[in-house]
């Protein structure tokens, strides 16, 4: 069973900022959902997931994490959390095996668990033949797959991904999305940000649209498309956020 999150009136203001990055954000992420957080550049997506993960602190508001056994503390939540950042947050001079061994140990896995999960994930993500080669020799797509494997080696109950398919080829994207579907089918809650709206439409069953630090909408994908009488998430996105560039938010 996955982890659910209740976010209540989160405000975030960075010390030197002139405006709030998040303006009273409230969201409910149900256990086992595939939840997309979408929005233009500078909307506040990364800030929101950074607060959820505990990377940065909120200025105001509350976050409640809950499992099937009830509400849990952040410390407990962190053990069940998998995080896949947009950057290749791994050690490029090491091999995928060595990276997975290191991060697996930090996730408190033992030697045996690490070995079996490493074999499983490297096979699943098509990296078994390069398991002992340095990551720095890999293509962008291969690095993304290693980045994902690190985030899920401990079989997390909730997985947060920041742009997991940016800059990768179709084959890598396909492998990543298939594995995410499989994880979700096994009960893992997935929170996902992306600019690939077609991919998000295909993958997510719930989405929240965020712009200028505010949640514009939060509902199931099916109801959203039905409400706007369209088959394209892109159309709804542009309708709600407009066509203006958001460079001034940077």
């Amino acid at each position: 069973m996955g982890i659910g999150i209740d976010i209540q009136h989160i405000i975030k203001r960075y010390p030197s900022a002139t405006r709030n990055s998040l303006e009273g954000v409230s969201l409910t992420i149900n256990p086992g959902s595939k939840f997309g957080i979408l929005g233009p550049n500078g909307a506040g997506k990364t800030t929101l997931i950074s607060i959820i993960c505990g990377i940065i602190e909120k200025t105001e508001g509350n976050i409640f994490y809950h499992s099937d056994k009830g509400e849990i503390e952040y410390k407990e939540f962190r053990k069940k959390l998998g995080f896949v950042p947009q950057d290749y947050a791994l050690f490029q001079e090491l091999t995928p095996k060595q990276n997975l061994e290191y991060f697996g140990a930090l996730y408190n896995l033992n030697r045996k668990q690490i070995a079996s999960q490493t074999d499983y994930l490297l096979n699943k993500l098509g990296l078994a033949t390069v398991a002992d080669k340095q990551v720095c020799t890999f293509s962008g797509g291969m690095k993304r797959r290693v980045n994902l494997a690190i985030g899920i080696i401990h079989q997390p109950q909730i997985l947060i991904l920041d742009e997991p398919t940016v800059g990768v080829d179709v084959q890598s994207k396909n492998a990543i999305m298939k594995l995410l579907d499989e994880l979700n089918a096994n009960g893992t809650t997935i929170i996902y940000t992306s600019h690939h709206l077609a991919e998000a439409q295909e993958f997510c069953n719930e989405i929240a649209l965020i712009d200028m630090g505010k949640i514009i909408l939060s509902q199931t994908m099916a109801s959203l498309l039905k409400e706007h009488q369209t088959n394209s998430l892109k159309e709804v996105f542009l309708e709600l956020t407009g066509e203006e560039y958001r460079d001034s938010n940077v």
């Binding site: 053990k79 959390l81 791994l90």
Partner: peptide, 21 residues
């Protein structure tokens, strides 16, 4: 390198002690 590539940030989301690292 580890700070800029996000490894340190990733550690923050893990059940581990940064000082051990």
């Amino acid at each position: 390198a580890e700070r800029n590539n996000g490894s340190f940030i990733r550690l923050k989301t893990m059940p581990t002690n940064f000082w051990m690292v």
